[in-house]
Amino acid sequence: MRRALLVAVVVMLVALAGNVQANDWKKIRIGVEGAYPPFSYVEPNGELAGFDIDIAKALGEAMGAEVTLVAQDWDGIIPALLAKKYDAIIASMSITEERKKKVAFTNKYYKTPAKFICKKGLMTEFSKENMKGKVVGAQRATIHDRYLTDNYGNDVEIKRYGTQDEAYLDLTAGRVDMLIADSVALSDGFLKKPEGSDYQFIGPDLTDSKWFGDGAGIAVRKEDTALVDKLNQAIETIRSNGTYKAIQDKYFDFNVYGE
């Protein structure tokens, strides 16, 4: 009896040690945001949904891994990855030099330009001159926040929000004059909805890679290079087997991957 117990303990220890040594990424936890429609939002029944979410699930399937989604507020999303609360971030995160100092990125899984929106008739022509003294909102810790701070910091009053949804609330309440964000998020998440009918895009597509990076990628911890390779392969797989296209067509009527 005692012997059987000893054997059982040894077997368990060996199994545990083996588990720690070789992480073959059969189970992967993915951090997502959940407040960035149409890429990531919470359904009325409480479940996460959106383009990012579907991509996360599809990638898990392509890797043969079991995916657990973890919802995390945006401004803590990189610190929580580094603190190992999850293993990868799929949250429309743009690949930028700043972020590369802290995390490793896969290749892009989509790329769309950034844009400003404002109330119809706020200004006849888009220019820095016309924007002087306006209140402009952006989501905190995004590339858009960064771009706004660097380029318009001295001319406009900047309001920073924890989520894009809060920024929309303040735009309709009239507390901010303009918002800057991803063009697709703005159009599908706000302009096409009834509350966004009085608002419009203004100014050019913003794509300068100094601020807007090389599209949205998946962030992982720098030491997990094997996971980067696996995810890159999985992106290839869903691109070629039609899964990506199916997900894209569910949300958009154009090519969201970019050229």
Binding site: I78, R99, R140, R160, D170
Partner: peptide, 21 residues
């Protein structure tokens, strides 16, 4: 939380700019 830059707001700005919580 409502866009005011108080001490915590300042910390959140710095955290988000440098990812150094």
């Amino acid at each position: 939380v409502i866009t005011i830059i108080d001490i915590t707001g300042a910390a959140r700005i710095i955290n988000s700019r440098y990812y150094s919580p």
